[in-house]
């Protein structure tokens, strides 16, 4: 991911940063369609624990993924203060449940560093790379392609 080709070297990327627990993550702003508050979801039977169920997004049945649980982090029950980021993953539209949206970050691809080995395996599976912003914060860039369950991924391909 740190490999920089001349064309993209100076290009800015806009990312949306969000918090889960004490950690900060971000995704490409282009993949996020909207951000909305948490509304109770209809649970789906026979689904992984991070699948919170489905909600009605203006007539679209939107699956909600608890991103923290997906990363193997400790998460509690969602409250009204939680946030759903509606994002495109492949051809699908999914809702990503996070604690809060914290920032919009601009940076070049060159600023992104590979994920260090110290990160836990479950996090590493979804993190494309990390970078630092002022104030000493570290943000992990998420690869959304892998957040849906494997079976759905195969279908999406």
């Amino acid at each position: 991911m740190t490999q920089v080709t001349p064309n993209v070297a100076g290009s800015d990327r806009e990312l949306i940063a969000f918090r889960i627990g004490e950690q900060e993550f971000c995704v490409d702003i282009m993949s996020v369609r909207e951000i909305r508050g948490w509304t109770p979801a209809t649970p789906l039977p026979r689904s992984p624990a991070y699948m919170k169920g489905v909600i009605n997004l203006r007539g679209t049945v939107l699956p909600i993924i608890d991103l923290g649980a997906r990363f193997g982090l400790q998460t509690g029950e969602p409250t009204e203060r939680h946030v759903i980021m509606v994002a495109h993953v492949g051809s699908r539209l999914v809702g990503l449940l996070v604690d809060a949206v914290s920032d919009i970050v601009q940076l070049t691809d060159a600023a992104i560093q590979p994920t260090p080995d110290v990160a836990s395996e479950s996090v590493k599976a979804f993190v494309k790379g990390i970078f630092a912003v002022e104030g000493g914060r570290m943000i992990s860039l998420i690869d959304l392609e892998h957040v849906l369950p494997a079976e759905a991924e195969a279908e999406a391909a």
Partner: peptide
């Protein structure tokens, strides 16, 4: 409403509605 559009087939569920 189809569940498959944005998720996948869920056993025991034919579809969803609002």
């Amino acid at each position: 409403k189809s569940l498959e559009t944005n998720y996948r087939h869920v056993e025991g569920v034919a579809a969803a509605t609002i």
